[in-house]
């Protein structure tokens, strides 16, 4: 009986894979020639219009900045949702044999009392991350600030900054952590960055450029706006991701 059920399940799954594969195959395997109009236009005009040498930056902070706003919003929602879910512990069933209380479950935990039992966070790890942390932070700022000239930008820089902050959090064996790794500070930075993003996106309205228009378009230094947006996004992404990582490692228990 049970075998029959499993077989029937497998047959249905296999059949749906075949069906989906049949719809997907023409798209994946197509070799229609790639369109060049947008690329050619951007090569000719992109730098002049947006001020960014890096055309990818020009698109996601200029031409399609609204998509970027959407993606930071998604990030914001993910952080808020993750936090509200992780902060809640209520159990429906009594803990079974496969429950959490094994010491390994605490892996990289940041809280002191849990730290005695785990083998994953060695002194070596603490020493190295503590030393490397500031350097990673510096590199993150470089990637963020030079996003309009070289590969990189707010997102990439922000992610590096986030890893720098996580390194700082991991690298400190005591409780006197730097301000930067406190969840409350990171959460506040995230909210402020979001507000700043919205305000700078609205700034174009007052200069007749419209929402997401470049308010510096006529000033001769249009790249200024790209740099500003890169910084705000870097701050937003950096604080969001670091916030999420630190809370997932159990850092929130201390606030």
């Amino acid at each position: 009986m049970n075998d029959g059920k499993t077989a029937w399940r497998n047959i249905r799954i296999f059949a749906s894979l075949v069906l989906i594969g049949a719809v997907m195959a023409p798209i994946f395997l197509s070799d229609a020639s790639w369109p060049v109009t947008a690329r050619d236009y951007l090569m000719a005009q992109g730098q002049a219009e947006s001020g960014a040498v890096n055309l990818v930056s020009a698109i996601y902070l200029g031409y399609r900045a609204f998509d970027t706003l959407g993606e930071t919003i998604v990030l914001l929602i993910a952080v808020t949702g993750t936090l509200s879910l992780l902060a809640r512990v209520e159990s429906l069933v009594s803990p079974g044999p496969e429950d959490t209380s094994s010491p390994n479950a605490k892996g990289f935990s940041l809280s002191l009392e849990k730290r005695v039992s785990h083998a994953l966070r060695t002194n070596l790890l603490e020493e190295v991350t503590g030393k490397v942390g500031p350097i990673v932070l510096l590199f993150g700022f470089y990637v963020m600030l030079y996003g309009h000239l070289s590969p990189g930008g707010g997102f990439q820089g922000g992610v590096i900054i986030a890893s720098g902050i996580v390194f700082l959090a991991l690298g400190n064996p005591y409780e006197d952590k730097s301000v930067l790794v406190r969840p409350a500070i990171l959460g506040g930075m995230e909210n402020i960055a979001f507000l700043l993003f919205i305000l700078s996106a609205m700034s174009g309205v007052f200069l007749e450029e419209g929402f997401f228009g470049n308010p510096l378009a006529v000033s001769g230094t249009p790249e200024g706006f790209i740099i500003l947006m890169n910084c705000i996004i870097g701050m937003k992404v950096g604080s969001s991701l670091a916030f999420m990582c630190i809370v997932m490692m159990g850092g929130a228990n201390h606030d």
Binding site: R39, V56, I59, R64, V74
Partner: peptide, 30 residues
């Protein structure tokens, strides 16, 4: 690479790269 330091040949299409940057971040969030 689509970074315009004078006199380079035909670059890759920058639009997919910018779009996928967005899609990757959304994927991470999900």
């Amino acid at each position: 690479v689509p970074i315009m330091y004078g006199g380079i040949g035909p670059t890759a299409d920058p639009i997919p790269q910018a779009l996928m940057l967005t899609a990757i971040v959304i994927g991470v969030c999900v």
